[in-house]
Design a protein around this nucleic acid. Structure first.
Lengths: 149, 149
DNA sequence: GATAGATAATCTGTCGGACAGACGATCTTG
DNA sequence: CAAGATCGTCTGTCCGACAGATTATCTATC
């Protein structure tokens, strides 16, 4: 079919198409995790150093609070995470990975590296690193005026 | 909150976070189009030079056939596209933009440029172009073995 | 210490979107 | 003409997401 050049000028299209390919590749891999890709994102965010409370985690991942609840339900019943009461604030539940969760996460992460390699195959190593850095800048910059929502 | 470095190494996270910001910015802008962002994508794909049939268009955009149907229903009732029978195959409906559709698309596209500028603001002009090209490569490369499905 | 207001997490109800499957129309093949 | 395949549409159903209320807890003020 080839790609008409008029869409190639739209970075949004390229962004979505790339994400679609990424999802397509990773969905198969993450399907056995509770919550699928979302579950993986939660595990990633729940690592030490990440946001501790469910709310912070939800905002960080762009999810609704209620979604986070039943997402964690599934992950917890699978033994991958634990909800521990925050000693400083008993309203807050700290989401922590279990050993099993850490193991699962590491395993998935290894496989994701391979998938990423597949996705980025058309690029040269230098370009991959460049892309990674550029996306990182866009993803981590907190735009002023928007706040936390 | 800051971004823990462990996720920064995951290009998938950066990709999703960037898309989320993009969606957040564009949703407001494209809300008045039938089908919202999807509708815009359809308009983009329906331009001359793009895939002609509904099925091809759906596959091109990663949508289900049935979704394409009611998406086009809305766009057509809004006067932005027309379904014309393919003279060579009367099963096929060629999706074509009306003049109004072209106008609307151009207008939206102009505004999208501004939104993109906002999104890409943290990058320098050179970097924006680099990112655009890199994403374009990833989006347009047809991975072998996957086919159109 | 007690009360009021705010916040974190959960539960409930509801709504819309997406897909599977069936159907009619049409092309292809024999 | 008959049979099978394909394109688009329609129907039914199911899952996911959000709004709102609820419970437990923190903070502020008196």
């Amino acid at each position: 079919m080839t790609t008409p050049e008029h869409v190639a000028t739209d970075i949004g299209w390229a962004l979505f198409a790339t994400v679609r390919r990424y999802r397509h590749l990773t969905d198969e891999l993450l399907a056995d995790l509770p919550g699928g890709p979302r579950g993986y994102q939660v595990l990633m965010g729940a690592q030490q150093g990440g946001p501790s409370s469910q709310l912070a985690l939800a905002q960080y991942l762009g999810l609704d609070r209620t979604v986070m609840t039943y997402l964690l339900d599934d992950l917890e019943s699978a033994g991958l995470v634990e909800r521990r009461p925050d000693p400083a604030d008993r309203r807050v539940r700290r989401v922590e990975l279990t050993e099993q969760g850490v193991t699962a996460l590491c395993a998935k992460r290894q496989r994701l590296k391979c998938v990423e390699a597949t996705l980025l195959a058309p690029l040269e190593p230098e370009q991959r690193e460049t892309l990674r850095k550029l996306l990182e800048v866009l993803a981590t910059c907190d735009e002023p005026g928007s706040g936390a929502g």
